[in-house]
Each structure stands twice: as C-alpha cells, then as structure tokens.
C-alpha cells in the first residue's frame, strides 16, 4: 500500500508541473476567461459547421443506410429489410442456409430477441469456433457512414461482437440517425450530461486489415462478414 501512495503523490507532483507548464505558455489575460465562455466557443464551433457534413442522397435515414451498404462501400457487409420483428428467426435461418452454416447462433440475451420463437435453432453457440454466428440488436444506426451503434449494458456483452465469423445485427428503422453528430444529442437524452455507457462502439463493416502490403483482407480478428437487418418498426 505504501508503494501505491508514493506513486499517487508522485503522479500528483507531475500533475502540478504539467498544469504549471501549460499556464506558462499562456497570456495572463486568459486567466479571466470563464467556463461559460469556453463552452460557448465550443458550441459555436459545432453550429458553424452543420452544412458542410457529407450529404445524403435520400431524405429518409434508413433508406440512406440501405443505399450505402448496398452500394458496397461498407466493407464485407450486406443488408436486408424486414417488415416485422417476428420474421427475424426466419430471416436468420435463410442466412444460415445460404452460407451453409450449422443451425446454431449466439443470441444476444435481450428480451426483444429472446422472446421471439426460434424453433429448434441453437442459441448459445460457441463463438470461438470457425463459422460461428452472432445475432444482436443495435441501439442506433447512422446513415452517413452505414454504421450501427452498440452500447454495453446488462443485456449487451461487448465481446460477442468481436469473436464470431458471421455477425448479424438488427437495427430498427426509427433509430437510424442521419449524421455522426446526431448521436451526441441522442446520447445526452439516453444517459444524461457527462454520462455514457462503459462501451460505445460504432461498427461499420467487417473486421479488416491492410497491414500486409496495403492489401485489404476481411476477418482480421473479428467478423469476416456482417449482415444488417433493418426492421421496419413504424
């Protein structure tokens, strides 16, 4: 324990030195600036930028998400639309058949998914095996980049999204946002000021690498193939 407190007091001294050195580089007039002014300046930076973000070809964010992924710019990713959540087990079954995969998935332990009727499909697959499949529900989608957003929670283990060979992610049409920045408003509403889940991941395609001679290969450590299912919930 003594060692620990020594370290903390040393770290404290370093903290003081760093802050003192930052002050040294500044004009004295900066001292008087209030946090409100800094926040105002920070907000102004965002307000002035709105029209320069990448624009969409479609007015409807979910349509744009589908269009982007269908056009092939999102690496290793396919997308389909479903009218009704109850059709999901059938859609997963068709996916498994199409890719010649065993009738077994790891299903995210979240009520909207677990309460569906999955028939004789195994729902606790071991993701550490070749050709494993995971199925989860994303919290949000982002049209601009063709991404989905997943928050860690009591029903969303982070690891399941990084181990399987095939990853099926459902996203509700009504939760697809237009731009990356739109997420910050939603996050504020979901979690409150200064709060966030432990883990927030924007997933945009399959795990990939260009580390050997710049050549793109899918399935570096995580999924080789991502399939997005956009659920019409309106």
């Amino acid at each position: 324990m003594k060692h620990k407190s020594d370290e903390l007091s040393r770290s404290d001294q370093h903290r003081k030195d760093i802050f003192a050195d930052i002050k040294k580089g500044k004009p004295a007039s900066n001292e008087a600036i209030k946090p409100e002014q800094i926040e105002r300046e920070a907000q102004a930076l965002l307000d002035n930028y709105v029209q320069d973000r990448p624009f969409a070809l479609s007015n409807e964010p979910a349509d744009e998400l589908v269009r982007r992924i269908t056009s092939g710019v999102v690496i290793g990713t396919t997308i389909e639309r479903l009218d009704c959540t109850s059709l999901l087990p059938k859609a997963v079954e068709i996916f498994l058949d199409k890719h010649d995969l065993p009738n077994s998935i790891l299903l995210q332990p979240s009520a909207p998914l677990t309460r569906l009727s999955w028939g004789d499909m195994g729902l606790l697959a071991n993701l550490d095996q070749e050709n494993s499949v995971s199925v989860c529900m994303a919290d949000l989608g982002i049209a601009e980049t063709g991404s989905v957003i997943i928050h860690s929670s009591e029903t969303m283990p982070v690891l399941m999204n990084f181990l399987s060979t095939y990853q099926i992610i459902t996203v509700r049409k009504s939760t697809v946002l237009r731009h990356l920045e739109d997420y910050s408003e939603i996050a504020l509403r979901l979690f409150g000021p200064n709060k966030s889940p432990r883990n927030t991941t924007l997933i945009t395609g399959a795990s990939g690498t260009t580390d050997i001679e710049g050549e793109l290969v899918q399935g570096a450590h995580g999924p080789r193939h991502v399939h997005i299912i956009c659920l019409d919930d309106q």
């Binding site: 982070v158 432990r198 945009t204 990939g208």
Partner: peptide, 15 residues
C-alpha cells in the same frame, strides 16, 4: 470499421 468510446471499468450490471 470500429470506432469505440471506452469509459472506465465494468458497471454493476454489465455482462
């Protein structure tokens, strides 16, 4: 492909 925001240790109910 992955843009992740990590925040501290596991929360009480996290899996």
């Amino acid at each position: 492909q992955y843009t992740t925001f990590h925040n501290g240790p596991k929360r009480g109910t996290d899996l």
